[in-house]
């Protein structure tokens, strides 16, 4: 896990950023006292951090969502409380960013402050997503997100999955692709994430930390 106070989750839209960020917040809250998660997604209309609000708040996490999240309007407004978090240095901060370069654009607004304070910017990868299923596309996506945010990706996360149809082969295949990008761009892999049924198995095959996810962003029939 990162040692930085501010952890940013970026990636291709649908890569699982929110699921990973929300679980990351819960994990942080089990180790440190003050954790805040900020929903800065200006792309996705449904399936947001706000879906897990009560679960997060039960663990004492400060959940900051745009006032229009999960309402019937589509207003890409940023929550003002984020500015407080740059001052409140006693908080560990998790920023959940919208997908692609479009979503990462919001970071440019806070770029100077983030560079000044230091950050860890994760790039969440699912190689089973159609726009990041080749090395070229992956590299291009990283380039686009860095260009639009003005920040550097500091760690990669292998979140390769097919939801309920995920198996070990899927995760390992994703890992090979991400390893190639990691070596080429010299960006370390932070961890592999996946649902709990993969615990143990993945670590046997890949020598890297496995971060177990609990499904918190649900469908009406889950």
């Amino acid at each position: 896990m990162s040692k930085e106070r501010i952890n940013i989750f970026t990636g291709h839209f649908g890569s699982g950023k929110t699921e990973v960020a929300v679980n990351f917040a819960l994990n942080s809250a089990s180790r440190t006292k003050k954790v805040a998660i900020v929903d800065l997604d200006i792309v996705n209309p449904y399936f947001r951090t706000a879906d897990a609000k009560s679960e997060l708040e039960n663990k004492g996490i400060w959940v900051i969502t745009p006032m229009y999240a999960n309402t019937n309007v589509d207003v890409p407004a940023l929550p003002p409380e984020i500015n407080t978090l740059f001052e409140r240095k006693d908080y560990n901060v998790i920023l959940d960013i919208g997908g692609d370069d479009l979503g990462a654009k919001v970071l440019a607004r806070y770029k100077d402050e983030l560079i000044y304070q230091g950050y860890c910017m994760y790039f969440v990868v699912n190689t089973k997503r159609p726009m990041t299923d080749t090395d070229e596309k992956l590299e291009h996506m990283i380039y686009e997100i860095e260009s639009s945010s003005g920040l550097k990706v500091t760690k990669l996360i292998n979140n390769t999955n097919l939801l309920d149809q995920t198996n070990m082969e899927v995760v390992i295949e994703g890992h090979s692709a991400i390893k190639r990008i990691s070596d080429k761009l010299n960006i370390p892999i932070g961890f592999v994430s996946g649902f709990a049924d993969l615990v143990g198995g993945v670590e046997k095959e890949i020598d890297i930390e496995f971060f177990s996810l609990k499904k918190l962003i649900k469908l009406p029939w889950n």
């Binding site: 649908g14 699912n126 089973k128 997503r129 159609p130 299923d133 999955n161 097919l162 939801l163």
Partner: peptide, 14 residues
């Protein structure tokens, strides 16, 4: 091959 896709993306791809 299997991919993980949004409903909307799949309509376009199909």
């Amino acid at each position: 091959e299997k991919l993980l896709m949004k409903g909307n993306e799949v309509i376009a791809e199909a």
